[in-house]
Simulated scan of single mutants.
Amino acid sequence: MEVTGHAQRTAWRERTLPPVEQVRPGLWSVPVPMGGPLRWVNAYVLELAGGGLGLVDTGWDADESWAALCAGLTSLGGDVTDVRGVLVTHLHLDHVGLAARVREASGAWVAMHPADADGIATFTDRTPEQLWAEEVAFLVGLGAPPEDARADAGTPEQRAGLLRVARPDRLLEDGDRADLPGWSLRAVHTPGHTAGHLCFADEATGLFFAGDHVLPRISPNISTHAGGAADPLRDYLGALAAVGGRQAGEVLPGHEWRFRGLAERTRELREHHERRLAELLAAVRANPGCTPWDLAAHLTWSRPWAQYERRMRIFAVTETDAHLRLLASRGLVVGDGGTVPAWTAAPVR
């Protein structure tokens, strides 16, 4: 795998924000800051034939992020009012968060996959209190003590921002061509990170806008959630295999840095998950009758398990649950059928 976003990787190492970069004639990468360990989102700006700009992802809905996006557009000679269309790779707030502000400022259309459009409709139709209660109930259903579930889920007020998320004006299915004149971007449905995650492949240049499906350094979080896909890791691994067979000149991810070597990176990610599945199966065998909440504590993480709490612990437990579901679909583990599943290894045949 070859790093092509050298300034981005340098900024990552130095814990700074990378510069706005021209990736190709008429194409720029604008870093939009966000909180948390990922630090920024790569918003991609495309110059359109006949005038105007297109965006692939927008960034987190915060004043600092909005200022950075607007300043980035100004630095390349444009303005947010020039935006004609926004392609959303997936419904997570660091990617879709500013789409509503962009649309309000410019009149641009917003497009995403129907599955993620349904996801947005689901949480914008609920109150913050309902969303909070659903997450608490889901965590308890994975084995969390109720008090831990309530603490990790935060507060209903922290979900108020979800109600501002833009519902799409247009829907894009797998293989659909995006309406960005001068570009030949086709949607590639890559479920797993979310049910409607989209990548965009440009047929003319070989560029592959990967969103969070393929990142150069980390494995995207693949988790279960209330009302979500039954086996999201199976979906993800299947989408990785399909994407790995594509010819891509350069990968433009939603985080971290640009790179070449899509086939190699997808192979690495598949191998990572197979190792993780093997580790989890060993943990189930050593600790039969455990819930997903309990089993997460027996796995290797980036820091000691005792330091995990709040959103980090939720991600870890729901990722463990996704891996358990794939092991179950492979016939390697068996749940007890209870309201809170307790898992044991399937008998060896």
Rank of each mutant, 00 (worst) to 15 (best):
R39W: 11
R39G: 12
W40I: 13
V41N: 08
V41R: 06
V41D: 04
V41T: 13
N42A: 10
A43T: 10
A43F: 01
Y44W: 05
Y44I: 08
Y44P: 02
Y44D: 07
Y44S: 02
L46Y: 13
E47K: 14
E47A: 15
A49P: 05
A49T: 14
A49C: 05
A49V: 08
A49M: 05
A49H: 08
G50P: 00
G50W: 06
G51S: 06
G51K: 01
G51E: 03
G52C: 01
G52V: 04
L53I: 04
L53F: 07
G54D: 07
G54C: 09
G54R: 04
G54A: 09
L55S: 06
V56I: 15
V56P: 00
D57G: 07
T58W: 02
T58R: 01
T58F: 04
G59A: 03
G59S: 03
G59Y: 00
G59W: 04
W60R: 08
W60A: 08
W60Y: 12
W60F: 11
W60S: 06
D61Y: 06
D61H: 08
A62S: 14
A62N: 01
A62D: 11
A62Q: 09
A62C: 05
D63M: 10
D63A: 14
E64W: 02
E64S: 11
E64K: 07
S65A: 15
W66T: 10
W66F: 06
W66I: 03
A67S: 12
A67V: 06
A68D: 09
L69Y: 01
L69T: 08
L69M: 03
L69G: 06
L69E: 07
C70E: 13
C70R: 12
A71C: 02
L73G: 09
L73R: 07
L73A: 11
L73C: 12
L73T: 10
T74N: 12
S75P: 02
S75Y: 00
S75H: 01
L76R: 08
G78T: 11
G78D: 09
D79F: 08
V80K: 10
V80T: 10
T81Y: 01
T81L: 01
T81W: 00
T81S: 13
T81E: 13
T81V: 11
D82Y: 10
V83D: 04
V83P: 01
V83A: 07
R84F: 13
R84S: 14
R84K: 15
G85N: 12
V86N: 08
V86L: 05
V86Q: 08
V86Y: 02
L87C: 07
L87I: 02
